[in-house]
Design a protein around this nucleic acid. Structure first.
Lengths: 332, 332
DNA sequence: GTGAAAGCGCTAACAC
DNA sequence: GTGTTAGCGCTTTCAC
């Protein structure tokens, strides 16, 4: 078996309580005893058992992230950042794949058995069943990328509507009048971005040439839509892609047909993920404030863990327009 | 507080022991008592506490996956498949981001505190520090995508060399003589794929036109290398990309310059991930046996968990060539 | 079939 | 400062 606190106590001739005090820096321990304990710990290679600790403390020190897969570049950034923040606070991040929340066995391990003290949910498209499930539990939860406004769970979000506004205003400011928009799947963030763009154009008396993607958003979507426009001869002077990949796909189509970006057509993306940087000009992109998302959501979760009320339950963060080399004033 | 086994026992007028027996299907319990217990459990919404269980059983029921980020499409597939397999066996998969294994706090939570019964390591580029760390622990570990052959940890791998051979033979079989290869970063799998292709061509008295990528492999790499070939006028009649994204990037470059795939140039990728399916013709690709990887690695881990010796410590699985529409016989 | 008792490894409360 | 005692929630003997 592995070495326990009792072994350490025996080894250094003190009680388990004193050892515990040294480990946790609680209570007063004479420096001399302290050194003895530390020596014994080192010699034996002792480390506390998490299960025993969790049992007696009633908490695990583990924060879960519930997410559907590992595909997201954007997700990865947020999660990695949140992990680092939590580590500073003594919590550890553990990721759980929730491909199908409705399956009992999925829920059992994470929720029923109280393996985490709280968690983040990133589950685009899976919200309703996940949240349905969560109602029964009293665990602190922060939604990170929720797609339905329905829930009254606390969340941290990006103001996607504002993002749409920013993208549109940037292009209008450059003199563009014929602006195309390549849409993503039926998700809240896509709706918002599009709505922001549409409203902004309307304010200027313009109409958005908007065409939808399929049920995912990737390079192919941008490529296909842009090609459709080219075939039809309805080519805008500027295009907004619902994300950087889509924008890159559109650029791909334009390049193939001899249009240059940004000389002939300006293109704006979302997320500012440098995925196609050597393929297209560096994209002008609406960037998500990843560090702030991580920081704020961790802060909120820690508040809940401490049993405090949240000062603000719903946080909507502004994105930031990063101007690259894919946009320029319209040719007059 | 949450409801415990004692509450259930009181509620149904039986002892905690009997309740435990019902929960775990161990020992004999009269059907009548059994029903009483189940009713009480249902009424109280009882679920066993994982910490208490782990403590007494000496195991957690959790399997960890150590991985550097969440970016991998291929990784995602493997992990999702492994998760499902493990669930069948009563284990749950928990992912841990090990961005920097050398940091003490990272290791402490996962390893020292015995939070998992065993784990998989997917850590391209991080092997040596990770494995260094692991030596101290006696936890069952299976390497899933290791890049250095150095370790004597059990692993499940794909025979990438064979994959390179398959890709090359396919093209040679179609009559191609000028074959280009677009390489990836300095990792074992890339070396192997390339070596397989080179050796195969050599056997046929041919030389591979091989050009390297940067430190990642993505669309841009394929695009850049193919463009270089076009500029130089050294355009092969067939191209192998170290992965599907790279292959797609090459196709992008060809398309832009008026070359058609597969009519003018054949292209083969690796991984068979349908990422650019609406952009390029459906790729001919060397597919990894994801379900088998998951199945076998789980099987091996379970063997280790059961304290048994592994029948085979090192498993190298053959990939499979999936012929799509991006390759055809060379124009004579 | 069922339950009483003991114990997994740790910490909090209370003495000394 | 330090140790004794008790108990977190559960399972595993071992009686009955």
């Amino acid at each position: 078996m592995s070495v326990s606190i009792l072994d350490v106590a025996k080894r250094c001739g003190l009680s388990t309580v004193t050892v515990s005090r040294v480990i946790n820096n609680t209570g007063n321990v004479r420096e001399e005893s302290r050194q003895k304990v530390l020596a014994a710990i080192r010699e034996l290679g002792y480390t506390p058992n998490a299960a025993a600790r969790s049992l007696v403390r009633g908490k695990t020190g583990l924060i879960g992230v519930v997410l559907p897969d590992l595909k997201g570049l954007y997700t990865s950034r947020v999660v990695v950042a949140a992990k680092a923040k939590l580590l500073e606070k003594g919590y550890f991040l553990s990721l759980f794949l929730f491909d199908d929340i409705t399956r009992e066995d999925n829920a059992r391990y994470i929720l029923d058995e109280q393996r985490v003290d709280g968690f983040f949910v990133i589950a685009p498209g899976l919200e309703s069943p996940v949240l349905e499930k969560l109602k029964r539990y009293n665990l602190p939860v922060i939604l990170l990328d929720n797609q339905y406004a329905l829930a009254d769970y606390p969340y941290v979000e990006v103001d996607d509507y504002l993002g749409g506004v920013m993208a549109a205003e940037h292009l209008i400011g450059l003199g563009h009048r014929q602006i195309g928009y390549i849409d993503g799947p039926n998700m809240l963030c896509c709706h918002e971005r599009r709505a922001g763009a549409i409203d902004t154009l309307r304010k200027h008396g313009l109409r958005l040439l908007c065409e939808g993607g399929g049920d995912i958003y990737d390079f192919s979507v941008g490529y296909r839509v842009a090609n459709r426009w080219i075939e039809r001869g309805t080519i805008p002077s500027a295009v907004i892609g619902v994300c950087d990949s889509v924008a890159a796909g559109a650029i791909g189509a334009f390049k193939e047909h001899g249009y240059r970006v940004p000389q002939d057509i300006s293109v704006v993306g979302f997320d500012n993920i440098p995925l196609y940087n050597n393929y297209s000009p560096r994209l002008t992109s609406v960037e998500q404030p990843v560090p702030t998302i991580a920081e704020k959501s961790v802060e909120m979760l820690l508040q809940l863990l401490a049993g405090r009320e949240l000062t603000s339950r719903f946080l909507k963060l502004p994105p930031r327009l990063v101007v690259g080399e894919s946009t320029r004033p319209v040719n007059s």
